[in-house]
């Protein structure tokens, strides 16, 4: 049974008509054609599918689309104002040359973007304790440096 769900994605009002149990992940990727949010495990374990829903960090493979009604969703594609004017987390990711295969990284950036909202001056321990995403290439040391850099970029921007 399909139903219509209305929500905002990256600032734009949208609606989809899908099975209510369909994960937000597949709606974002295949109904809305935004491919930056990744499928990694399908069980909310790896964090590759992380997005923001009403400002909170959510693993979108475990977020049935019915929960999105009336909510505001941000994906990696909506994080920055433009490709030239990047969100501090994305800018820091470039500055620190963080990624390797890159597949899990959009999820990490979404988590990092949320983290610098809560911690204006995060320590290594703050980052280690609060982000549990999985990366196989081993970009961890650069992720930690980039999140700290993003926090200071954010401060100097504001």
């Amino acid at each position: 049974m399909k139903s219509k769900i209305n929500f905002t994605i990256n600032g734009k009002q949208t609606s989809v008509e899908v099975n209510l149990e369909m994960p937000l992940l597949w709606v974002i990727r295949d109904e809305l054609n935004l491919k930056g949010t990744k499928f990694g495990c399908g069980r909310a374990m790896c964090g590759a599918c992380s997005v923001h829903v009403d400002g909170e960090l959510v693993r979108s493979c475990s977020f049935a689309i019915k929960r999105a009604q009336g909510k505001s969703i941000t994906t990696i594609e909506g994080l920055s104002e433009s490709e030239e004017n990047l969100h501090p987390i994305q800018q820091a990711w470039i500055d620190e040359n963080v990624l390797q295969c890159g597949y899990c990284q959009t999820g990490f950036m979404m988590a990092g973007a949320k983290l610098i909202e809560e911690f204006s001056d995060p320590t290594d321990e703050d980052i280690k304790a609060n982000i549990s995403n999985i990366c196989r290439c081993g970009t961890h040391p650069r992720i930690i440096s980039a999140i700290k850099r993003a926090a200071s970029l954010k401060k100097s921007n504001s």
Binding site: K35, I76, E77, G102, Q105
Partner: peptide, 8 residues
């Protein structure tokens, strides 16, 4: 780097 950061 940039393509991957932007989620291309």
């Amino acid at each position: 780097l940039k393509d991957k950061v932007l989620g291309k």
